[in-house]
Simulated assay, not measured.
Amino acid sequence: MKLGQAPQILRTTGLGSCVGVVLFDEGLKIAGMAHVMLPDSSLARAGTNHSAKFADTAIPNLFALLLEKGARKLYIKAKLAGGAQMFHYSGANELMRIGARNIEAVKNQLKLLHLPVVAEDTGGTNGRTIDFVIETGVLLVKTVNKGVHEI
């Protein structure tokens, strides 16, 4: 998890089933990014505290940090990328659909906080790297075997 302000660019790499979440206040040109690895912190090993890894803890924490830095609640928006199904499992059960579960968990947390998703590039079967250009509010999505596009 990281915060920044223009002219910084926030980046995360290796988004397979993980979801990159950007929360930003475009007017104040401040943003934060989280690399969500799993949907729910109840999946954490006992005694560990990696709140930035889980949708149910990363999103509220990132939101709170942005507010502390002066972001205005009514102006914070979200952009998402990732959540791919990286491996095919025959007869796969729900637990193996990590990408889809991560996307759903992230969107649920954003909904609870009343934060609109203004753009997303989620799902599929290819990994991604993302760069968020705080100055412009553009999320550059680099998808394996598909090139780069802006959302």
Rank of each mutant, 00 (worst) to 15 (best):
M86D: 05
D40C: 04
V133N: 11
A71G: 12
L139G: 08
D25V: 10
M37I: 10
L110P: 06
A78G: 02
A84W: 07
H35I: 03
V148R: 11
M1E: 13
L43R: 09
L15R: 01
R97N: 13
H114V: 13
L110A: 06
R101W: 00
I76N: 02
M96P: 00
V144Y: 12
L3P: 03
I130Y: 05
V117C: 05
G16K: 12
A105P: 02
Y75E: 15
G124D: 10
N108E: 14
I9P: 01
D56L: 01
G124R: 10
D131G: 07
G83H: 06
V148N: 10
N93G: 14
T125D: 12
A46V: 11
I151Q: 08
P116S: 09
D56C: 02
G20R: 03
V118I: 15
G32M: 08
D121A: 14
S51V: 03
T12Y: 01
V22E: 03
K77G: 00
D56H: 00
H88S: 15
P39G: 07
K142D: 15
R72L: 14
L140Y: 07
A100D: 14
Q85E: 15
I59C: 06
L74H: 12
E68H: 10
T129K: 12
A46L: 14
T136I: 07
N61D: 15
K146M: 11
G47F: 03
G127F: 09
K53M: 12
A78E: 04
D40A: 03
K77D: 04
V106M: 04
I76M: 06
L62G: 06
K77F: 04
V117S: 01
L80R: 05
L139E: 10
A105N: 01
G123E: 07
V21G: 02
L66A: 06
L66C: 00
